[in-house]
């Protein structure tokens, strides 16, 4: 059924397994004994108050920061999309997408990835000629062209306007359905989490404090999640 055929895997194989992870900045403990497992093809959203350590966790998974304890087992280097697009202004779009790509037909692969995000006609354009949403789409193409088993997204749509964000949601859902990486999406937006994720996690006190599988009644999930985040809704939410 799945497009991805791994030689020896039977059921789900994990994209990443985190066990007893600890991380502190000086004496301030940010992550404490955190456990997390994300399967390939699974879309996980991570919610949590500002400053609770979501970015810290994501950077640890990406191998960008050292950890103070525990284990992170990922089969391969994950791909990351940051809140800012981080395109190299001196490289054309296809060269940006191809950054770090080690295959023979680099340009063709980059072109295909750009076509997937709807920018197939802008191969030789400069990043500065792009809108915010387009730039973020290129960043997405750059991450997916690596064919990652784990895709880490740190509030990639936070800087976009509401309409563009909805378009990006559709695009991301399509791309993830095609490539089937495990996804960890850090977001502040409860609705975004509900719209995209198979599983929603709430982080608190340095660990995963709440977990919710999205299926069935979405408005209930929303109220519950908001309560977990310490937000009391003053208005009833229209269904």
């Amino acid at each position: 059924m799945t497009l991805h055929v791994a030689p020896s895997s039977t059921a789900a194989s994990p994209a990443v397994v985190v066990t007893h992870l600890c991380r502190a900045y000086g004496s301030r403990v940010v992550i404490e004994n955190l456990n997390l497992r994300i399967e390939r093809g699974e879309f996980v959203a991570l919610l949590g108050e500002s400053g609770c350590g979501k970015t810290t966790l994501l950077r640890a998974l990406a191998g960008l920061d050292p950890v103070d304890g525990g284990r992170i087992a990922a089969p391969r280097r994950p791909a990351v999309v940051f809140q800012e697009h981080r395109l190299l202004p001196w490289d054309t779009l296809w060269r940006n997408v191809a950054l770090g790509l080690q295959v023979a037909d680099v340009r063709e692969r980059a072109a295909a990835a750009l076509a997937e995000v709807g920018l197939g006609d802008r191969l030789d354009d400069w990043p500065r000629n792009l809108s915010g949403g387009q730039a973020q789409r290129v960043a997405l193409a750059r991450a997916l062209v690596q064919e990652p088993e784990l895709l880490l997204l740190d509030e990639p749509f936070a800087a976009l306007d509401a309409l563009t964000r909805i378009r990006m949601h559709h695009l991301v859902r399509e791309l993830v359905a095609t490539h089937r990486p495990g996804v960890l999406l850090v977001t502040h937006d409860v609705d975004e989490a509900i719209a995209l994720a198979d599983r929603i996690l709430v982080m608190r006190d340095g660990r995963i404090a709440f977990e919710h599988r999205t299926s069935g009644a979405r408005s209930i999930a929303r109220a519950e999640l908001l309560a977990e985040l310490g937000v009391v809704a003053s208005h009833p939410i229209p269904a």
Partner: peptide
């Protein structure tokens, strides 16, 4: 941040 991106890639 661009250096970091290079490492990520």
């Amino acid at each position: 941040k661009l250096i970091e991106l290079g490492r990520v890639q």
